[in-house]
Structure formats: structure tokens, C-alpha cells
Computed example of a mutant assay.
Amino acid sequence: MTLDRRGLLATGLALALGGCAGRGGVSLVAGPGGEAAGLETLRSVTAGPTGLTIRVASSGCVRKEDFAFYVDRTGVPPTIAFARKRLETCHATTPGEAALTFTYQELGVAERGRLAVLNPLAANP
């Protein structure tokens, strides 16, 4: 799946029809069920009062700066996608997860309304 304008619009429309409720004034819409090449599989995504918190697999040294996000504000609802910029090079004895919070201001989206997250969600986080 490429992230061209037509693909994002079609995916955003499909996702808008099957949304799930979030917290903090923002309603999240589930990510795609099919291929999402280049996008990070999220263990969870939560809409809080000040921003989105994503939980991702981690070897112990992932940082927020290791992620890039793309927001398409042209559709309704706006869509967002997260991708890793670099792989982790550390190795913990037990792989785990990390919680990364991105504020709505940082993402450039309103603190109210709907927001479609395009990343796939892990089946068993």
C-alpha cells in the first residue's frame, strides 16, 4: 500500500465508516487490516486529553525521535501514520514495549473530533 493521496483518501473513508471511540475529545478510527508497507505495527494507540500515545515493540532504547509521522488534513477525518526512522541497535534480555506520546499540537491536529490512524494494530499486544 502506497501513501499517495488517493490511497489515503480511500483508506480514510473506509476507516471513517468503522470507527471506535477514543478519550479526551478525540475519536480514533482503527488502522487498516491489510498491508501497510513501511508503517509501524502498533501494540496500542490511545487518545488522551493532550495527545496520542502509541505503544510499540522495543528492545529497550527506542525514543520518540526515532519515529516520524505523516498527517493528511485534507480528508475527513484527518489521517495519521507513524513510521520508524531508524532501527534499534540495543538488545535487551527481554524484548518489551515503549509508550511514546505525541501532543495534538505537535501533530498539528485539533484536540477534538475524529482522527484516523493508518498503522496496523498488533493482534495480541
Rank of each mutant, 00 (worst) to 15 (best):
P95V: 07
T74W: 07
T101L: 05
G22N: 10
A68Q: 12
E97G: 13
L118N: 01
F69E: 05
P77L: 05
L115A: 04
A122H: 01
E35W: 09
N119I: 02
V45T: 12
F69K: 03
A37I: 12
S59R: 14
R114D: 09
G75A: 07
V62R: 14
H91E: 09
A92K: 13
G96L: 06
G108R: 11
E97H: 13
T89F: 08
A10K: 11
G7S: 15
E97F: 13
S27A: 11
L107T: 04
G22D: 07
V71A: 01
G108V: 14
T89S: 11
N124T: 12
A81L: 06
L42T: 00
T2R: 10
A122S: 03
F102P: 11
V56I: 15
A14K: 09
E88N: 07
A83P: 10
A10Y: 09
G25E: 10
D72Q: 09
S59N: 15
G51E: 03
P49E: 13
E88T: 04
Q105R: 14
A10D: 14
K64A: 10
A122P: 00
R112Y: 04
E65D: 15
L15C: 04
A83Q: 07
G75K: 00
G25C: 07
G24L: 01
L39S: 01
L115G: 02
G12F: 00
D72Y: 14
N119W: 00
L15N: 00
G18D: 11
Q105K: 13
E35M: 12
G34E: 14
G38W: 09
A99Y: 03
A98I: 09
T50M: 02
G7H: 12
S27F: 05
Y104E: 02
T74C: 02
P77H: 06
T89V: 14
R63C: 05
V26E: 03
A98G: 08
L121E: 12
V62L: 15
T79M: 06
N119Q: 04
R86F: 05
K85I: 09
V29H: 15
D66E: 03
T89K: 10
P32A: 11
V71P: 05
R73V: 08
E97Y: 13
P120S: 05
A99G: 08
V62E: 12
G75W: 02
N119H: 03
R6P: 07
P78T: 00
A81K: 00
S27C: 06
R112H: 12
T74P: 01
L42I: 06
R23H: 10
G75F: 06
S58N: 03
H91T: 13
E40N: 02
G48L: 00
A47S: 15
T103W: 04
P125I: 00
L52C: 08
T101I: 02
G51T: 07
P78V: 01
V76I: 11
A57F: 11
A37F: 14
A123M: 07
L9V: 10
G31Q: 00
P78E: 04
